[in-house]
Design a protein around this nucleic acid. Sequence first.
DNA 1: AGAGGTCGCGCC
DNA 2: AGGGCGCGACCTCT
Length: 537
Amino acid sequence: MADLASVVREREQAGPRWVWDDTAHWYPPLLAAGVRVQRCHDLRLCHRILRGTALAPGSALALAAPGPWDEAATDTPTPSGPSLFDAFDEDGFGEEGVADGGDLVDGLVMGADDGVAGELARQLAAVAGSSAPGRLRLLLAAESTGALIAAEMHHDGMPWDAEVHDALLTTLLGPRPPAGGRPARMEELADQVRAALDQPGLRIDSPPDLLRALQQAGLAVSSTSKHELREIEHPVVAPLLAYKKLSRLLTANGWAWLERWVHDGRFRPDYVVGGVVTGRWATNGGGALQLPAQVRGAVRADPGWALVVADAAQLEPRVLAAMSADVAMAAAGRQADLYQGLVDAGTVETRQQAKYAMLGAIYGATTGVSAALMPRLTRAFPQAIAMVEEAARTGERGDVVSTWLGRSSPRPSATWQAARDAAGSEGADPADVRAARQRARDWGRFARNFIVQGTAAEWALCWMASLRRRLREIDGRPHLVFFLHDEVMVHSPADVAEEVAAAVRESAAEAGRLLFGGFPVEFALQVAVVQGYDEAK
DNA sequence: AGAGGTCGCGCC
DNA sequence: AGGGCGCGACCTCT
């Protein structure tokens, strides 16, 4: 194993695609040895996609009994070292896009274990025999590149200034208390809450106790949630909400978090590629995908460096416009602000209405302002709305829907199906029927959102993969340090930051072409070159 | 004491 | 209002 790194380093110059069972297993030690690879095929991640895809339901892979490749990453005993394929193809991020992703691999197996070679053969066969090989090739390449990026971002880390963070905590909470103690500012607020409720001994951190105390004080609340409290007029509300906010900061991103997650000026979250059913990433610990705006000021570029922060504006509506080929919606997105585009087109009166209406279409609003706007949206964008409605009905039936590139939704649980069957039988209990209808509608909303959120995740992966390739051509080693669904951050030498910003824009355009070919949808970005993350947006 | 469930809230 | 998450704290059950 000692010379695995040198073997990989040497062969890497030929530009191969490495095939291995698990990027998260093989790549970190290579990175530690200073080796970067350009391309890989992650068999575990790709297996999961191919196992579930509705584009190749009859493949040998899909029909096989569950095996080791279906296990979660941590449980998988590593069967062998990585295999090297001298790949001569374009990697799915070439010019072909979904029409023709090129051959996945084309070459020679070096020292492959039967398990790895056999699995690769099954995957290639599943792709080749699918109803859309080009899309699946692109998806598998994007997913695998995502795995490389996740490992690299963990290795490089997000620049994090612990002193800034500590100062911020001290300002908001007071000095760090001894272990287990409550910071001074929180203690003051807790006292105010107890006084306002006339409950000197109240344990404010216990929701049941707090709820009882609120009700005894005459407040008409059914929970202690922020949302409900905000509606109430009572002296307890202001200090209690302030307490909750500080309490959240302390427990989620306080000093303990800082000690656990930030070392040597870097925050290194464990990304879980494809950790969400829709294809979005998740994280394991550290809460990297929920970094509150409050602490973003601690993310600071190194001296002489800058942060290039970019996020895709209204990504999901634009994705919906493209995948449904709704030219009217695409036209509304021809400007930087798609929501304003809806106003200008006369679909709705205000930007806020446009936003609520679009979110309602994508999430499946059934009541309120958002639902009320749906008829206008349907008139203006019949094709886009028809697509999400169709997905919702498919979900309500318990059937599978798929993203643009072919990641398919899970089937509803056995419980779900049993409830549906029971409700459909002769003389079913009306309560059961109502419950089953509710569950059906819930799954319909899930399916509706799945196709849009999942396709947006695919666009984002392609965006990031394209950007990663472009960054290699820029001097000074600018590198990705953060990814958040529709947002990326590059840590870049200050003197090439504008070059990086341009690469970010070019990559977004390339991602759009890769997925949607010539369809005239634009993926507008907000790009900022900043020193601290809090200066972006 | 530890496991699992729920709440509440942060992000998109 | 609707979709997707992770996580810490509390609570309950074993």
